[in-house]
Simulated scan of single mutants.
Amino acid sequence: MPRTSDHQERRQQVAAAVERIITTDGLNAVTVAKTAAEAGISVGLVQHYFRSKDEMLLFAYGHALQRFEQRVTALVGRAEEVGTRIEHIVVDALAESMPLDAERRREWRIALAFTGRAADDPRLGELKVAALRRTRALIAQALINAKECGEVAPEVDEHVAAARIAAYVEGLAAHLHADPEGLTPDAALAALGDHLAGVFTGQCELRHREPGERPAG
Rank of each mutant, 00 (worst) to 15 (best):
E155D: 11
D25L: 05
V18R: 04
V46M: 00
D186T: 13
S97A: 12
R10H: 12
G125I: 01
F68N: 11
S52T: 11
R78D: 05
A162C: 07
R164N: 13
Q12Y: 00
P154V: 00
L27R: 07
D121H: 10
T24L: 01
A140F: 04
G202D: 01
E170L: 12
A188Y: 12
D92F: 05
E205N: 13
M56V: 09
T24I: 09
E38A: 12
V169G: 09
A74N: 08
I139A: 14
V169P: 14
Y61A: 13
D6M: 15
S42Y: 03
Q13M: 05
A64K: 08
S52N: 07
A74I: 14
L183Y: 06
A173T: 01
A163R: 05
A161G: 05
G26A: 11
S52A: 08
A36I: 01
A15F: 03
H175T: 11
P211N: 14
G217Y: 11
I89R: 10
D54W: 02
N145M: 06
L57T: 03
H63F: 12
V152T: 09
R104C: 11
Q203L: 14
H177K: 15
M98S: 07
R11S: 02
L45E: 04
A153N: 07
V90H: 00
A216L: 03
A140N: 08
R3S: 11
R214P: 08
H159T: 10
D6R: 13
E69F: 09
A197R: 14
L124G: 02
Q12V: 15
L138F: 07
L58F: 12
M98D: 01
N28E: 11
A163V: 02
P180V: 14
G40P: 09
A36W: 02
A102D: 10
L192F: 07
T23G: 08
H88R: 13
S5I: 14
D120R: 01
R209W: 05
A36S: 01
K147S: 06
H208G: 11
R209K: 05
R51N: 08
P215K: 02
P122N: 04
A216T: 09
G77T: 13
H175C: 05
G202W: 06
L45S: 12
A39F: 06
V90T: 13
Q141K: 05
I144A: 14
L192T: 06
A190C: 04
A191Y: 04
E96F: 00
V129H: 14
R109E: 04
L189E: 10
C149M: 10
L27P: 02
L138T: 11
E170A: 10
A191D: 12
A166D: 10
S42E: 11
V169W: 05
G202T: 03
A162V: 02
F68T: 12
K128I: 01
A191L: 13
G182S: 12
V90S: 00
Q70E: 09
A111F: 08
E213P: 06
V199R: 08
R164V: 08
A17F: 08
Y168Q: 13
P122Q: 00
R207S: 03
T35K: 04
T23W: 00
A16P: 01
T135D: 07
V32G: 06
F114N: 00
R51Q: 12
A17H: 02
R51G: 04
D92G: 06
Q13R: 15
V46I: 07
E107Q: 13
H159M: 07
L94D: 07
R109T: 06
G40L: 14
V43A: 09
A36H: 02
A15N: 08
R117H: 10
A173F: 00
